[in-house]
Nucleic acid binder design. Structure first.
Length: 648
RNA sequence: GCCGCAGUAGCUCAGUGGUAGAGCGCACCCUUGGUAAGGGUGAGGUCGGGAGUUCAAUCCUCCCCUGCGGCACCA
């Protein structure tokens, strides 16, 4: 029999007969490893212990200690166990697919009636039973015809469709535990008993389209989370609780920031506290942009459909636009308009006024542009996904040669903004030419290269996102990570030669001839509404001092201190701080609690002693300790602390 | 938009085929209290909207609206 050579992670190599399985290799090394082994990596591929190896290879045997592989196998097999449990309880249910996702898995079923929360309990109980049966897992490679015949006989149409979609040269793996089987590429654990019966939980039921296509049937999806042990599961459930506590909708109410109501779905009613955050952030961005060489403009909300037709948006996005028809008797002209869903066509109109010279480029035109989009009802989510929002939008008109330096400049700009706002790192996604696109290959080559060079010039890494660019040009998306590890795509940078073309933007070059500028769409925050939601959740409501809507509350302990409280408050306000006096007839305990819940960063408590000594007792949010200090000093410190980061 | 769930006082929620209740909040009174809820009294509800069944609907049925969890979407 032919021998093959297997190289282990420590560099040692040994010979085995061709067709040896990782299980046999493990057994050859030690009994205990054979027992503990769960899978292997063979030449970089995650490999089932039972799959034969036919040629020289690098091999690593995994145990439950290898998190990545262990979790992959656990979640994967959990999905199968769940599907088996469902079919054991309801044999008529049809199975479809069930992939591993972050923290767990889901499985989509075709079933007449949706699953209820009570059903989840029954399924969980059955899953535990199945795990305890310790059924061995086996995989078999079947011929395509046999598999199709099998699934047709079992009335599993979705599986037949899946097989049809698998390329002809790929082996079809049939996966069995006990009498239950599923089509699956593997790898798998050796038996279901290797699954931790106390470290998973079925979380929710939801509808999901078959193959993610809204024209196809709606299936019933069950989500589960699974870990190696009970502790990890508990940690994850705690994380979810923590995320819920940070929910901006809840904090928005508790901190009295904004509300939303039925008369304006998807739009924000900003309260004084929330609007304070908004304007503080906007003032900051305005200063940054001025310093960054942008000019600021403002353009109309209601714009004739002719412009949207010219820009191409009418064709593509009409469904998502708020249409405003002026068709009343009193109107002189009957027109059809749309609320602007974006600012770029209007910016081109500003650009097009007067003749532009190459000397005017790059022209960086910014607008805090209020936009309205008729988002599908199901997409709305607090202030994160709304129908009326304001972008920190800008368009840079430039020549092809300027793209690279403008891109690098923007990345630096964005880095500085994110840092000021408390996000130290972000990820760059580089989306390149999609299949359906306009423009010449040479132009794509050049522009993509310019973006890549620009990223490198700023010393950042990027993740390639092939084929995900806009039809008119490549783009960069910037994702920041929040305090509990969630990612948010906020910034964007898109190269667009198309819109200037459609809307007839030109500049006069050195040669005296007219040329077409490029347009770079860019944003840092995305929308103020969404970004403020992110800020709130990132900080758990405890916003940095300069952004906090109420920075200081001055609270009296006894009513004899009221005059001094008012005096202190007035002095704080005069120094530009957002301060409030609280002289209500309540105990200091009560006031401290209320303003702590309201996330006020600093409480100055004033009783008889402070009045006499011209001091204040300072208490910072989240700290139990207080400090008694002369008010003049405190005023000085707080005024410094309130300076926005760009002015320090 | 699709699937499921929900909508009762400002907020969080209980409740019943015979037109409603708690806690917090709010108002007033007592209390002047030293760092996360002092006490008392009181006001406050077209039970999301519309239609139907019924002697009678907040409750049952249907339609709509809005929200929530997903899916799809996100220029």
């Amino acid at each position: 029999m032919a021998q093959i050579s297997l190289t282990f992670p420590d560099g040692n190599a040994r010979d085995f007969p061709a067709g040896v399985t990782p299980a046999q290799v493990a057994a050859d090394i030690s009994n205990s490893l054979a027992k503990k082994a769960i899978s292997a990596t063979v030449n970089g591929a995650h490999w089932d212990l039972a799959w034969p190896i036919d040629a020289d290879a690098e091999i690593a045997i995994h145990t439950m200690k290898d998190d990545a592989q262990a979790l992959e196998l656990i979640r994967h097999d959990m999905a199968h166990v769940m599907a088996r449990a469902v079919q054991e309880i309801w044999p008529e249910v049809k199975v479809t697919i069930g992939p591993v996702i972050e923290n767990g898995w889901y499985y989509d079923f075709d079933r007449q009636d949706p699953f209820t929360p009570e059903d989840l309990g029954a399924i969980e109980a059955r899953m535990k039973e199945i795990i305890n049966r310790r059924d061995p897992v086996t995989t078999e490679v079947w011929a395509r015809d046999r598999a199709v015949a099998f699934y047709e006989a079992n009335d599993e149409p979705y599986k037949v469709e899946l097989i049809d979609a698998i390329p002809g040269d790929k082996p079809l793996r049939m996966y069995w535990h006990g009498h239950w089987q599923d089509l699956c590429r593997g790898p798998h654990l050796q038996h279901t008993g290797q699954l931790p019966a106390d470290a998973f939980k079925l979380m929710s039921v939801a509808g999901a389209y078959w193959r993610g296509d809204s024209d196809r049937p709606m299936l019933q999806r069950i989500y589960g989370v699974g870990f190696k042990n009970r502790d990890d599961l508990r940690k994850y459930l705690n994380f979810l609780e923590e995320a819920e506590k940070r929910d901006h909708r809840r904090l928005g109410r508790e901190m009295d920031l904004f509300h939303m109501q039925e008369v304006a779905p998807g739009q924000v009613f900003w309260h004084p506290n929330g609007w304070s955050i908004y304007t503080t952030l906007q003032d900051y961005m305005r200063r940054k942009q001025r310093a960054g060489g942008y000019v600021e403009v403002n353009t109309p909300q209601v714009v004739d459909r002719k412009l949207w037709e010219a820009s191409g948006h009418w064709d593509k996005y009409q469904e998502h636009m708020f249409i405003v028809e002026v068709d009343e008797d009193h109107a002189r002209e009957k027109t059809m308009n749309a609320l602007k869903p974006m600012n770029c066509p209007c910016h081109v109109q500003v650009y097009n006024q007067g003749l532009k010279s190459y000397r005017d480029l790059p022209l960086r035109m910014a607008e805090f542009g209020s936009c309205n989009r008729y988002e599908p009802s199901g997409a709305l989510h607090g202030i994160m996904r709304v129908r009326g929002f304001t972008q920190d939008d800008a368009h840079i008109f430039c020549t092809e040669d300027q793209i690279e330096s403008e891109c690098a400049k923007f990345i630096d700009f964005l880095t500085s903004v994110y840092k000021d706002l408390g996000f130290d790192s972000f990820e760059i996604m580089f989306a390149t030419r999609p299949e359906k696109r306009v423009g010449s290959e040479e132009s794509w080559d050049h522009v993509e290269k310019a973006l890549e060079q620009a990223i490198k010039a700023t010393g950042n890494d990027y993740t390639l996102d092939p084929g995900e660019g806009a039809f008119y040009g490549p783009k960069l998306d910037f994702k920041l990570t929040d305090a509990i590890g969630r990612e948010w795509q906020c910034g964007t940078f898109q190269v667009d030669p198309n819109l200037p073309e459609r809307l007839g933007a030109t500049y006069v070059g050195e040669d005296g001839a007219k040329h077409r500028p490029y347009m770079l769409h860019r944003a840092c925050l995305g929308s103020f509404e969404r970004f403020i939601g992110i800020l709130i959740e990132n900080a758990s409501g405890k916003l940095p001092f300069w952004l906090a809507p109420r920075q200081v509350v001055v609270a009296s302990i006894v009513s004899d201190a009221d005059d001094y409280v008012n005096e202190v408050t007035a002095a704080l306000k005069a120094a530009g701080l957002r301060a409030e006096a609280d002289t209500r007839n309540e105990k200091i305990n009560y006031k401290v609690r209320e303003h702590s819940v309201g996330k006020v960063p600093v409480i100055l408590a004033i009783g008889q002693r402070e009045v006499e000594e011209r001091t204040v007792t300072l208490r910072r949010l989240g700290e139990k300790q207080t400090q008694v200090r002369p008010f003049a000093d405190v005023l000085d410190d707080l005024a410094k602390e309130a300076v926005p980061p760009d002015l320090r």
